[in-house]
Lab assay of single mutants.
Amino acid sequence: MSIQHFRVALIPFFAAFCLPVFAHPETLVKVKDAEDQLGARVGYIELDLNSGKILESFRPEERFPMMSTFKVLLCGAVLSRVDAGQEQLGRRIHYSQNDLVEYSPVTEKHLTDGMTVRELCSAAITMSDNTAANLLLTTIGGPKELTAFLHNMGDHVTRLDRWEPELNEAIPNDERDTTMPAAMATTLRKLLTGELLTLASRQQLIDWMEADKVAGPLLRSALPAGWFIADKSGAGERGSRGIIAALGPDGKPSRIVVIYTTGSQATMDERNRQIAEIGASLIKHW
């Protein structure tokens, strides 16, 4: 067993022997301040990774656009098919120029040779490549099948209805392509620590998230040296922004954090800054 596999296998073990965790309302004060600064709703939840206990939450059962955070769930569904012998990570998928959609920095470079399922998941999570996500959605049967996968996990809230990039439209009061912070946090925890996926697939999923290259201005910008984070960000229309993450000190994750916002007129930089400040408060009061 590799060191990384050992780390993920012992996530519940280490967490069980940690000192009790206590909620700190100071972080919620910052979440509410972010709402004021952005002029928009902000949803927040913080779960203990081992027990699933909610440590703090704000608007945990209000719907927010998922945006690209759905790509972690998508690759979880792909990995479940791999575990069941219905898919192979090494299978190569070929596609054409007509398949390319807006923001496809990886797939646009491989029109000639195609990409493997493993490479597509890596591109979808680490670079948020939209064509990679659409190609992977095709392998599982489309958005409705991802929703069905989530329902089978016990998540009857999260739903995907459309493809990239239309799913980022974020129309107010439109339930399409949305989740709730509580539902997303619980589902992410199941994917990373539950028995739904094999140990190898859980490790692969967290490795992809740990290698995320496009979430630097968010929670990662607030992390002290030595902290662990595996995350996936999302951005959408109407001032929408979000991030889902597993993080913790001492090089291992111990909490799940989900943050979503929508309806702001603020710039992307300002949305990023507010999420980073929430992260800084979380870490300060850990």
Results as ranks from 00 to 15, higher is better:
1 M>H: 01
4 Q>S: 13
4 Q>A: 10
4 Q>I: 10
7 R>K: 10
8 V>R: 12
10 L>S: 10
14 F>R: 01
15 A>F: 15
22 F>I: 07
27 T>V: 14
29 V>G: 15
32 K>V: 10
32 K>C: 09
33 D>R: 15
33 D>K: 14
34 A>I: 10
34 A>V: 13
35 E>Y: 02
39 G>R: 14
40 A>I: 04
43 G>N: 00
52 G>N: 08
52 G>R: 05
58 F>R: 09
58 F>D: 02
63 R>P: 07
65 P>N: 04
69 T>A: 03
69 T>Y: 03
72 V>C: 07
73 L>V: 12
75 C>P: 01
82 V>M: 06
85 G>Y: 08
88 Q>G: 10
89 L>A: 07
93 I>Q: 05
94 H>C: 08
95 Y>E: 01
96 S>F: 11
106 V>D: 07
106 V>Q: 10
108 E>N: 10
108 E>Q: 10
112 T>V: 13
113 D>F: 07
115 M>W: 02
117 V>C: 04
117 V>G: 02
121 C>G: 05
124 A>D: 01
128 S>Q: 00
131 T>N: 04
134 N>V: 04
135 L>Y: 03
137 L>H: 03
137 L>C: 06
140 I>S: 05
142 G>R: 04
142 G>V: 02
143 P>A: 07
143 P>C: 06
146 L>N: 02
152 N>E: 15
152 N>G: 14
155 D>L: 01
160 L>T: 10
163 W>T: 10
165 P>Y: 05
166 E>C: 11
167 L>S: 06
169 E>P: 05
171 I>G: 14
174 D>W: 02
177 D>F: 01
178 T>E: 02
184 M>R: 00
185 A>D: 00
188 L>D: 00
190 K>C: 10
192 L>D: 01
195 E>W: 06
200 A>E: 14
203 Q>N: 13
207 D>K: 12
208 W>R: 01
209 M>I: 02
211 A>F: 09
213 K>Q: 14
213 K>F: 10
215 A>D: 02
215 A>Q: 05
220 R>M: 03
236 G>R: 01
236 G>E: 02
237 E>A: 15
237 E>H: 11
243 I>R: 00
245 A>T: 05
246 A>G: 06
247 L>C: 07
251 G>Q: 11
253 P>V: 09
257 V>S: 03
257 V>M: 05
257 V>E: 02
259 I>E: 00
260 Y>L: 11
263 G>K: 06
264 S>V: 05
264 S>M: 06
266 A>G: 13
268 M>T: 08
271 R>C: 08
271 R>L: 12
272 N>P: 01
275 I>D: 00
278 I>M: 09
279 G>D: 00
281 S>V: 15
282 L>I: 12
283 I>V: 12
286 W>E: 02
